[in-house]
Amino acid sequence: MANLRDLRTRIDSIKNTKQITNAMKMVAAAKLRKSQDLCINSRPYADYVERVLFLLQQKNNTKTHPMLNTPNPNGKILLVVVTGDRGLCGSFNSSIIRYTNQYMKDNNDKVYDLLCIGRKAYDAFKRSGKVVQHFTNISENTDIDNIYPVKNAVLTMYSSGEYSKVEIVYNEFKSAIQQELQCKQLLPIASTESESEHYVDFLYEPDEETLIEELCTKYINVELWHIMLESNAAEQAARMTAMDNATNNATELIDQLSLLYNRMRQAQITTEIIEVASGAEAIQQ
């Protein structure tokens, strides 16, 4: 029974893997709590920027600002793809990549470009020749300043007039065990007029155009930041679930293998006893 030792080695290696997956689960759980809090705390801010923008739109009936109304309806589409930088988080990255591939297939007739956030998205699409810009290693740092380069890139590209709209694909954090893939239009900013809010005649300082310009920039910034937080929380949640499953599978495998190992050991001992006993028997006769 030579493979008794092999079995032993296998059990040990699974035990090591289990320890790692368990540690990763703990880390993801701790990070999840942090990003979940941030995500929830940031909601009033994002909502309020949106509300002020809405109040301004109410007065400024023209809506001629390029960020509210596209200046070039036949332009290209810019698709912002948000994934994580690391793997081992279940279908978190792959579902985004699958969706983007499908999107590209469905919109074959239109011209589009990709802007990738996160290493996984860049790795998946760098050969397609569609990636115009990519950002990696920015999802872990949750400061709002951290998103400025992305915002600047998106706004510069959009204001060049080449693009008709900017869409963003990301995972929204639903709960610790559920993420939902979202595809949202980032620019031009969709009007939120459905709210039945009272009309107030506000005074503006300096003037409406300057305010709209500033607010739109801020809105994009906040929106991108909020999406990064959502995606970050979703990634941690996905990793936590994936690692929890991996740990459970490892436990199950260890149990099965231990059973097999013990049975084999028992069998070996029995054989040895029989051998010794029959040897002794032979000598007595």
Binding site: L203, E205, P206, T210, L211, E214
Partner: peptide, 19 residues
């Protein structure tokens, strides 16, 4: 501190938005 100068807000101020 507003962009176009400092100002004070007292109760019953007129509706107002600024940077």
């Amino acid at each position: 501190p507003g962009v176009d100068g400092d100002f004070e807000i007292l109760p019953d101020h007129t509706p107002f938005i600024t940077k």
